[in-house]
Design a binder for these strands. Structure first.
Length: 975
RNA sequence: GCCCAGAUGGCGGAACUGGUAGACGCGUCAGACUCAAAAUCUGGUAUUCGCAAGGAUGUGCAGGUUCGAUUCCUGUUCUGGGCACCA
């Protein structure tokens, strides 16, 4: 009997579906385990081999936990709102709802073929009104809450209103907001009160900058802006202020930082989040501005360098710029502001070689020595960080130094010999000079002294600062959750919870609305309501994905987003698998939402993910063909119209390295294409233009192009192509790039599953390497894994003899007279299973697969066909290759599904060893091996080792200096 | 530019806590079976010197710590991911 994987996999996938074996209950006596994959966006291109990497890993672990006796939740769903669907709608007129539905169907059928153990009854889609109803509901909770700094948690905004009514702002520590008394609060009109409350709400509206493209009349995502112009059409893009919604994630900065201590993420992942939050401590202080009744507030982490301040730099967007610029400088400043408008934040920070800035004409006054300090504006200072203004200390800061140098600003040296005049030195270890009351102090000690003095003088105070900014939460787009908000005379009125979901209305056109608003603004009937005008922005992609892990627990609940008893049962996600690209976006947002829901008492835990494992990205290995075109100025064009000439990679390389000239190439072309005219040059130009073109990797075998397939490719575009080969082959060039449809380097899992089966595909994806590492996809090698499964099959079946397994208690189907398994057979099994279990436990699935290969090789070598041995191996194989395991399990005569079998327990008695073949090194280099008992003591070992003739030879009669013996490891003789 | 990660044979990778570098698989070479092919099986396969025994070199690059370093430290190069409106 042959291994007919197609029949087997189809059969069991159907049976599992009919028997609902993956249905998960919220009630169980077993311990729970929650395994989650990062929410996929259902792109139109379908699944490529990169997607399932993490899904297979999580599926293996989920199945493993199930065999180990856990009630495992392993759901899947779709993050189905998003820009690509809308972009596609804009281009083709198809409604995003339609294309999204189609894409999801494709994704699901592709996923199902790989044999995942998802409970599809728990599927969620963020664009489903039954889902986004609760996204909107949570938004309203955020809107109606504020962060209470005394209790350090979110509380209903009504509590704050009460506080204002009773005590005003006395107990509210929010430095950016004006203070008032209780009676003042009562005297404010509604608009004023609401605008004050807006400064406290966790979801709030304010003004922020967007990428505005005048030509397209729309706001663009960063993704859609390339080199300062729009990707579509190449129109100029500039920044513009618009009303936006934000989430006050900054209120949670400290808790997001502290929470990292309680979760099991990789150190690098935590580091990235810490850097993103960017906590720093220092001081905020005010500088008087000469001749103005204005103060310039700066934030600095190095108040010890206060006497080294040689200039001030404001962010170009800073409010003070307009007020302090002198008439002489006005023109220059305006020109500079115009320039900055066209620059993205990224460009402003990354281009350090090009130094730009402009003097405002104004001066700040150093409060300690009265020195007048010129105030500049420069793009390297960003408005969003700190106070949007810095005090520049060129002797201690590289960028300040470069700036001072560029604009010839004199530099004050406060660190003596530590500053060499050629580059800044950011040390904290220097003794301060030229520094007034700080003279003679070590810099790191002076920081505190300076802050104390600043506070004494009342010109500033100690301040902890976070680099993180509040998260922009609105998009001027169609395909997202509508905000449950109505604007009435500038006041935002939330909808009542009973009015949810506010459904996304149907539109026929996806173009932008007037004055930069989203497409919804075009629907006058929808926008206009009796008490005002609806918010026309929609929520961003991360809205739905910030809480989806909760909805999976209780997906059909129409009373609440997730019942508290259910969320208490499933609690945190025990294992979350996904890419590092979400390190600071999605992960921080969902952590924040979780904390808010926790504060409001709606869930019982404040960190969503207990453990996070990052999967690497599978890159594509692109293939190139090299097309030769001729310049019309040299050759008559017509003859090349019908034919396209391609040169093999080797020839292309020679051409590139000038190892072959025009004449040489001409000769090669002539061999296959005799009608080419005589060789010509014009002004020393050969007239050959060679262009690398991406070619579909699926019609290339290794590097060799399948010419017949190529001629059929792209509707016969290359049907008449002519090839200049090397060694009778056309070889393609290659490059590792991101896997993408446009690069023709995507590999579809369906083809591989068809050809080799899901079990082979699953094991091969794991066998490629560690899950967390990025690697290029290469289909070569999948044969090896397939061969392994066939070899495993042959432990049970012989091509001619049929079933060959034996057992001591034969059933009619089986061969009688089986013998009990030998110690050697048990030892081989348990040694293998031990490695496999340990590897699975630590997510080392690639070595887990190789463990199975070693085990099957060994069992084949010792001709072990004992049912009792093979059966245990099958159970351990379920997570990796569920279909073949289930088939063989059932063929062995077992009743019930193997998915619920008990994971084999390792009998350690078979694994005990009494001696070891020790490597013996001389000076760290292995020279021989000696078998020594594991019981041996140091003196015994020394005696055995020194008696060895190889060791004797290397000692050359000299006594050893030292003998290092590490039990169960090695012996090293130092000479 | 800033933050994070990675680099080991022809290729994917293994070596988990500083202890035999190259497990397992691909490819390749030789052989068996076969009229032949496929499938399968057996053996070799880091580089280099040597008939062999055996030796030397070798984990991106340059140093350091150690009896011993792919593993730890310092510096450096290249590649990938992120940088706030792709998801």
């Amino acid at each position: 009997m042959e291994y007919k994987f197609r029949d087997i996999e189809k059969k069991w996938q159907d049976a599992w579906k009919v028997n609902k074996v993956y249905k998960v209950s919220n009630e169980s006596t077993k311990p729970k385990y929650y395994v989650l994959d990062m929410f996929p966006y259902p792109s139109g291109a379908g699944l490529h081999v990169g997607h399932p990497l993490g899904y297979i890993a999580s599926d293996i672990y989920a199945r493993y936990k199930r065999l180990k006796g856990f009630n495992v939740l392993h759901p899947m769903g779709f993050d189905s709102f998003g820009l690509p669907a809308e972009q596609y709608a804009l281009e083709t007129g198809q409604h995003p709802a339609e294309t999204t539905k189609k894409n999801i169907a494709t994704f699901k059928s592709q996923l199902d073929k790989i044999g995942f153990c998802y409970d599809w009854e728990r599927e969620v889609q963020t664009s489903d009104p039954n889902y986004y109803k609760w996204t909107q509901w949570i938004f309203l909770k955020l809107y109606n809450s504020y962060y209470n700094r005394s209790t350090q948690k979110a509380e209903p905004i009504a509590e704050l209103v009460k506080e204002f009514e009773n005590n005003g702002t006395v107990n509210c520590q929010l430095s950016t907001v004006n203070s008032f008394t209780a009676s003042e609060w009562k005297s404010f009109d509604e608009a004023t009160r609401q605008s004050i409350l807006m400064d406290y709400r966790l979801a709030f509206s304010s003004y922020g900058e967007v990428n505005w493209c005048e030509a397209l009349g729309t706001v663009l995502a960063n993704d859609e802006v390339v080199n300062g112009v729009s990707e579509r059409g190449g129109h100029p893009v500039e920044k513009r202020k618009m009303r936006q919604w934000y989430l006050r994630i900054t209120a949670y900065a400290e808790r997001l930082l502290e929470g990292l201590e309680t979760v099991d993420f990789s150190d690098s992942m935590k580091e990235m989040q810490r850097n993103w939050i960017g906590k720093s401590s220092g001081a905020e202080m005010d500088f008087a501005i000469k001749g103005k009744d204005k103060k310039l507030r700066v934030y600095t982490t190095r108040p010890d360098t206060i006497f080294g301040v040689d200039f001030m730099v404001l962010a170009p967007e800073h409010d003070l710029v307009e007020q302090i610029t002198t008439t002489e400088q006005k023109a220059g400043i305006e020109k500079y502001l115009q320039y900055v408008k066209s620059r993205s934040d990224r460009e402003r920070q990354s281009e350090v070689k090009q130094i730009t800035g402009c003097f405002t004409g104004a001066y700040a006054v150093n409060p300690f020595d009265g020195r007048e300090i010129p105030i500049w504006i420069a793009e390297y200072v960003l408005a969003g960080y700190g106070t949007g203004a810095i005090m520049a200390v060129p002797c201690g800061d590289e960028r300040d130094f470069a700036f001072a140098n560029h604009f010839n600003i004199p530099i004050t040296n406060i660190i003596g010999e530590h500053f060499n005049g050629k580059e800044a030195n950011a040390t904290k270890e220097a003794i301060l000079q030229n520094s007034g009351f700080l003279n003679g102090m070590l810099m790191k000690d002076a920081i505190d002294v300076a802050i104390t003095k600043i506070e004494e003088l009342g010109i500033g105070k100690r301040k902890v600062n976070y680099k993180m900014r509040d998260a922009g939460f609105s998009r001027q787009r169609y395909w997202g959750e509508p905000f449950p908000i109505i604007w009435s005379d500038g006041i935002a009125l939330p909808l009542d919870a009973a009015e949810l979901p506010l459904e996304l209305p149907h539109v026929d056109k996806y173009g932008p609305g007037p004055s930069g608003e989203g497409p919804l603004a075009n629907l006058t009937d929808w926008v206009t309501v009796s008490n005002g005008r609806r918010e026309t922005s929609t929520m961003p992609g991360y809205a739905g994905s910030s809480w989806y892990f909760l909805r999976y627990m209780d997906p059909h609940n129409d009373k609440t987003f997730c019942d508290r008893t259910v969320s208490d049962y499933w609690n945190q996600v025990d294992l979350y698998i996904g890419g590092t690209e979400h390190a600071v976006g999605h992960l921080l947002y969902s952590r924040m939402w979780t904390k808010v829901l926790y504060d409001l008492g709606m869930i019982g835990h404040d960190e969503p993910y207990k453990r996070l494992v990052n999967q690497g990205m599978i890159q594509g290995s692109s293939r190139f063909v090299y097309r030769v075109k001729v310049a019309t100025t040299v050759f008559p064009l017509e003859i090349f119209d019908s034919k396209q000439i391609f040169i093999s990679h080797g020839i292309y390389q020679k051409w590139n390295e000038n190892l072959i000239d025009g004449q040489g190439l001409h000769k090669l072309i002539q061999e296959v294409f005799p009608i080419i005219p005589e060789y010509k040059e014009k002004d020393g130009i050969t007239g050959f233009i060679i262009t690398p073109l991406h070619v579909d990797v699926n019609i290339v075998d290794g590097y060799e192009l399948n010419i017949e397939e190529f001629k059929k490719w792209r509707n016969g575009e290359y049907v008449d192509a002519v090839f200049i080969k090397e060694d009778e082959k056309y070889l393609c060039g290659s490059e590792v790039e991101k896997m993408s449809k446009s690069k023709f380097n995507t590999v579809n899992p369906d083809d591989l599953v068809n050809r080799y089966g899901a079990d082979t595909f699953r094991m091969y994806e794991m066998f490629l390497g560690p899950v967390e590492m990025s690697k290029p996809w290469d289909t070569k090698g999948i044969e090896g894994v397939h061969r392994f499964l066939k070899k495993l099959w042959r432990l049970f079946f012989d091509e001619v003899k049929g079933p060959i397994w034996t057992t001591t208690a034969p059933s009619p189907l089986e061969r009688a007279g089986g013998e009990a398994a030998t110690d050697a057979e048990w030892k081989a099994l348990y040694k293998g299973l031990k490695k496999i279990e340990e590897d699975t436990e630590r997510f080392s699935f690639n070595t887990g697969v190789s463990g199975f290969m070693i085990l099957v090789n060994e069992l084949s070598d010792i001709k072990c066909h004992k049912k009792e041995v093979l059966e245990k191996m099958l159970i351990a194989l379920v997570p990796y290759a569920p279909h073949i395991s289930e088939e063989l399990w059932s063929l062995l005569g077992n009743a019930g599904t193997i998915l619920d079998a008990a994971y084999p327990v390792i009998e350690k008695s078979y694994l005990v060893e009494s001696s070891k073949e020790y490597p013996i090194s001389i000076n760290g280099k292995v020279r021989t091996n000696i078998n020594i008992s594991l019981e041996a003591t140091q003196p015994e070992v020394e005696q055995i080792v020194l008696a060895n003739e190889v060791v004797q030879k290397w000692l050359e009669g000299k006594p050893p200096k030292k003998i290092i013996y590490v039990k169960n490891r090695m012996v090293n003789v130092v000479v």
